[in-house]
């Protein structure tokens, strides 16, 4: 595969042109389980046609306007900031409206270690979010406690709230997190996550 080099005169960061998701070798990665058996809706009768299409439109809208609530506590929150800032720029996917009020957010990104002392807070904030709501656990600490097998650290936030996407890494790179958001978006648009 030819790689197109992109010159970046003002930066030491090299970059290359990739391929759109679902086109190149990443296709295998983005494929989700159950995709082959997915109901495309083509065989539905006229009576359900409208509601199915409406569902698709709603899911499309939801997937493209994921307003994140960063529950950032530690190092991962800094990488979340990197993702929001100009170099990665999550606003290209309609997710730039960072809301610190749970009432206005769709997607909770738990970035950083959750310790026992803050666990009730996390639960409260999750409960306050309106449906439909999604949760991404970012980084080793949020997903499993990481290397803090310790007396004050929650061993994975699935002890407290349901999780839709797990992002390994300590901390994950901003593009790794972006990949998770894209994957979640794809899943929502397909209607694989139904809430509310």
């Amino acid at each position: 595969m030819p790689v197109q080099k992109i010159d970046t005169p003002n930066s030491i960061i090299p970059r290359k042109a990739g391929v759109a998701p679902g086109e190149g070798p990443e296709k295998g990665l983005i494929t989700l389980p159950g995709e082959a058996a997915r109901d495309t809706g083509d065989d539905l009768g006229g009576a359900t046609y409208l509601t199915t299409k409406l569902d698709q439109v709603v899911n499309w809208a939801r997937g493209n306007s994921l307003w994140p609530l960063p529950f950032g506590t530690a190092c991962c929150a800094i990488e979340f900031m990197s993702m929001v800032s100009s170099h990665y720029d999550i606003s290209r996917f309609g997710a730039e409206v960072v809301r610190f009020s749970p009432r206005q957010a769709d997607l909770m990104i738990v970035a950083g270690t959750i310790v026992d002392k803050i666990a009730p807070v996390l639960k409260t904030i999750y409960d306050q979010m309106p449906e439909p709501k999604y949760v991404i656990a970012m980084g080793a600490c949020a997903t499993s406690g990481g290397f803090y097998r310790a007396y004050h650290v929650v061993q994975g936030i699935d002890e407290i709230v349901p999780v839709d996407m797990w992002v390994p890494g300590c901390p994950p790179t901003p593009d790794g997190l972006m990949y998770a958001i894209l994957k979640l978006k794809e899943k929502i648009e397909r209607g694989e996550i139904r809430r509310g």
């Binding site: 310790v115 002392k117 600490c141 803090y148 310790a150 004050h152």
Partner: peptide
């Protein structure tokens, strides 16, 4: 404080 007490010293 203590909302990020990750037990560094014990670890």
């Amino acid at each position: 404080i203590g909302y990020l007490h990750r037990c560094f010293e014990k670890m």
